[in-house]
Design a protein around this nucleic acid. Structure first.
Length: 549
RNA sequence: GUCUCCGUAGCUCAGUGGAUAGAGUAUUUGGUUGCGGACCAAAGGGCCGCAGGUUCGAAUCCUGCCGGGGACACCA
């Protein structure tokens, strides 16, 4: 609808200019906004204000002339000019009510958009990608919820989406992990060995015991680093996989960092950079040159001992995403503690002569965990952390996801475990789900009374609460689009609450199953449309859609 | 020191350069002979951190300052 209004305005300006009612100038981009005050209509266009200088006319006068040239449509009951120069559009109720049938027809696809012309764009959302050195911890939960919801949004917006987990399976941390597991394994076999300095958490003790049970002492002596590394990785990744599924997150691909080396992606990228003279040596290490002669921007690619850095993998990885796998867009979800790496990744992308606009890095501010106001330390190395599983078992997946989703990625949040438990019953997600459960209950009641929505005439809907509910339902596609375009999944939680509020108000004002069969049928249609919208919204947010609570 | 995010109602937070800045919660008050009261309605509550600037118009953009979080490795 916003696009439609922009189109109508543009043609009106053009025809006014042809006749000479408006002077000739290149009109600015037409913005169509949702006024905060409902008395200003459903949509407002401030273009006349923006054009005042270009046209050298008073905004009110411009607005009036534009309105005079607007084509007739069935959408609006009123188009008016308001000081200081807004053009306000009010949707006609006759048009609004008919949209209910449209929503019913679209069903589960309502709010989803068709693929772009010329086939869907391929988007990859790479998220979580937590070091596989320990379980799925609460702090990473925000990453998972953000990434998964964003992937859902892109899917709804007509993109082909891949969800990927990048496994950091090379490097010193993994070696330390293997060493620590070797110790735990030996301890499980009754050897007197000092506890490992790093990764001292209970989970490795358990894995060590399992290994002792399965393999006996055959890996007790000699160098078993490879074996320990493999076992630690696969077993930890398994628990991460199980735990992400606990909150409804599934990855399409688990991408191994090591594969960048075994499949020569790294070699390819290295020689490409080398041939362009972008690499140089200093202090025995290989560095990536920066465009500007800014030493801070230069980064080590190969250490002086010959081993490639994490940054080297990053370069090969972005090549893999954009060239080997040909994604139109690659989205990275990173914690704000990685913000220093944004520039160097963008720089590396440019060095490879790839389009840096194809990669988007979303930084989310960190989640600090407290218990009754006291900070809880989070460190996998020290083995001191709270897992997602523990919290979800206390408060449930829906409340967990909602809590982490509802705030903008830009704001740091504090999660108090005790408070979360105490307040989980007040989580707004239940307000939304309750609206859905109430609707199911209405249909249960209708069935008992033999009422159906078949043949219902939506033109009978006219109560202000009915109209308001329809308005909210019709905002859904806009909300999906907005959240996608602005990479702002948290917006969905606010829209959902407003939709649910409109339903609850309707529920109070308008009894659905009543004597009047015609009106009952019409209202059942409306209620069904509301149910579809609530369900689709909850699905995108990755939450369950309960019929009863 | 450099980079970055945040500062909006008692609290937790939304807010796309637009009109009288919103929600949840808390506080106070009211509401159902009814399809689920996990609901609805009303009231009070604000130098949008401070100071400049840009603009017809700034919570929003720019600069500086104050306060808080985070990052500044041949770790990942």
């Amino acid at each position: 609808m916003q696009i439609e209004i922009a189109r109508i305005i543009t043609t009106a300006i053009e025809s006014a200019q042809e006749i000479g009612a408006l002077p000739h100038f290149a009109p600015p981009e037409i913005v169509v906004e949702r006024p905060k005050d409902p008395s200003h209509g459903d949509y407002a266009v401030p273009s006349a204000l923006q054009m005042a200088r270009l046209a050298r006319m008073a905004p009110l006068q411009i607005a009036e002339r534009i309105v005079n040239f607007l084509e007739e449509t069935a959408y609006f009951s009123k188009v008016e000019v308001a000081p200081p120069g807004f053009i306000n559009f009010r949707l006609a109720e006759s048009w609004l009510v008919q949209q209910v049938d449209n929503v019913l027809q679209r069903g589960p696809a309502y709010g989803c958009f068709p693929p772009q012309k010329g086939g869907p764009k391929k988007v990859q959302v790479e998220f979580l990608s937590a070091n596989p050195t320990g379980p799925f911890v609460v702090g990473s939960g925000r990453n998972a919820v953000l990434g998964d919801t964003l992937a859902n949004l892109f899917q709804a917006s007509g993109y082909e989406v891949q969800r990927e987990y990048y496994i950091n399976d090379v490097g010193t941390q993994i070696d330390h992990l293997a060493t620590a597991l070797q110790v735990r394994y030996a301890q499980a076999l009754g050897e007197e060995v000092a506890d490992p300095k790093e990764y001292a958490g209970q989970y490795l003790v358990e894995i060590g015991e399992v290994l002792a049970e399965e393999y006996g002492d055959q890996f007790l002596h000699g160098d078993n680093t490879d074996f320990m590394r493999r076992e630690a990785l696969s077993r930890i990744l398994n628990t991460i996989r199980e735990d992400t599924e606990l909150i409804g997150v599934r990855f399409d691909r688990w991408f191994s960092e090591a594969s960048l080396y075994t499949e020569q992606t790294y070699d390819l990228v290295y020689s490409k950079l080398e041939s362009q003279a972008l690499l140089f040596e200093r202090d025995g290490a290989i560095w990536l040159r920066s465009d500007e002669d800014d030493e801070d921007k230069e980064n080590v690619v190969v250490r002086s001992d010959g081993r490639p850095t994490y940054f080297a993998s990053d370069i090969a990885y972005v090549w893999d995403k954009l060239v080997k796998r040909n994604f139109d867009r690659a989205i990275y979800i990173w914690g704000a503690d990685h913000h220093g790496h944004v520039k160097r990744l963008k720089g590396a992308t440019e060095a490879l002569t790839l389009d840096p606009y194809k990669i988007t890095i979303i930084l989310y501010q960190l989640v600090s965990i407290t218990r009754d106001g006291e900070p809880v330390r989070q460190s996998k190395r020290s083995g001191d952390f709270i897992t997602v599983r523990e919290v979800v078992e206390e408060i449930g997946s829906d409340a967990f996801r909602f809590m982490l989703l509802t705030r903008s990625a830009d704001s740091a949040m504090e999660l108090d475990l005790e408070l979360a438990k105490r307040e989980s019953s007040e989580n707004p997600v239940y307000y939304i789900q309750y609206a859905h459960a109430r609707i199911t209950s209405i249909f249960r009641r209708a069935k008992e009374d033999g009422a159906t929505m078949g043949g219902g005439d939506v033109n009978l809907l006219e109560h202000p609460s009915e109209i308001e509910l329809i308005r909210q339902i019709l905002r859904f596609p806009e909300a999906v689009r907005f959240a996608t375009d602005n990479l702002a999944p948290h917006q969905l939680t606010y829209y959902a609450q407003e939709l649910a509020a409109a339903f609850h108000a309707f529920y109070r004002d308008c009894h659905v199953v009543i004597e009047d069969d015609e009106l009952t049928a019409a209202r059942l249609k409306l209620v069904k449309a509301a149910q579809i919208t609530l369900a689709n919204n909850l699905h995108i947010m990755g939450m369950s859609v309960p019929d009863q609570m």
